[in-house]
Design a binder for these strands. Structure first.
Lengths: 148, 148
DNA sequence: TATTGTTATACTCTATAACTATA
DNA sequence: TATAGTTATAGAGTATAACAATA
């Protein structure tokens, strides 16, 4: 089983690095938004609200339950970052960024741009080489195993 | 701020892919070990026990509290996969794989080797190109942001 | 006194189920 | 009847604090 062990070692080494790097990426994001006093989930929701969106859509995009989106929306509203606005279908509530929410979103964007490991540690050529490899690895099914 | 937005978009796209891929890698691992009826944390601990190790070491390597390692050890022991053996320092207990534990570890290894996305979706040349990019991204500090 | 492992407990995160209002 | 959001609650996962034994 020598061959299988070599294959295992290579897979373990690479996937270990991938998982570490993704973990670092998440941790960097967490650190950036912690300075804005935001838990990661709230920050992710803010970034998703480029356009006002039904809470149900948020639940789908974050891959979590509607009840948890209610929880997130409550906390975002307490902080004055979003407002619930009614849609034409009166069952639906859209989450819409307030001015403070827009400012927060922009602050997150700029901080990520300034500090991302992907930008600070790789040259343009390296990033150009990385992108197609990641695309090859990305599941065509669009299976999102991330999220909640 | 046009330039900053472009940088942000590129960082977001790449880090999104990285996080997705790492998530898929973790999900694949979870699926493999679920077939062996093992939660991910127990499986990770089994893979770490190539050599018998003090519980404290496990806590460090898994980046979680000693009390949680007690929990993991209890569950691994219930399944007959590890034994607690005393070290020369009688405060210390080493976790040591039983024969069943060794068989389980090997089963995990082989299944990972057979099914890893990294091996099935990338050519040898692509993996060779990926490795140095991941190394460039890997934190020199060895900061482990993964774990518990 | 400091460290290992254990116990009991509490907290965070997230989901499930039941409910209301609207379609 | 089915869907959007809410509420109350429960479960998993993990940490904290206090403790016993040993160094």
């Amino acid at each position: 089983m020598r061959h299988s062990e070599q294959r295992y070692d290579e897979a373990r080494r690479l996937s270990g690095m991938l998982i570490d790097i993704a973990g670092q990426t998440k941790a960097d994001f967490a650190e950036i938004v912690a300075e804005l006093d935001l838990p990661v989930h709230l920050a992710r929701a803010v970034l998703m609200l480029d356009e006002p969106a039904p809470m149900r859509d948020l639940a789908d995009r974050l891959a979590c339950d509607r009840s948890y989106v209610t929880n997130l929306a409550d906390r975002l509203e307490e902080r004055g970052l979003v407002e619930r606005v009614s849609g034409t279908d009166r069952r639906v509530k859209l989450l819409s960024l307030t001015d403070a929410g827009i400012a927060t979103r922009d602050a997150i964007s700029h901080a990520v741009a300034a500090r991302s490991m992907l930008l600070t540690r790789l040259t343009d050529a390296q990033r150009a080489a990385l992108a197609p490899l990641l695309e090859a690895l990305t599941d065509a099914d669009g299976r999102r195993s991330d999220g909640c």
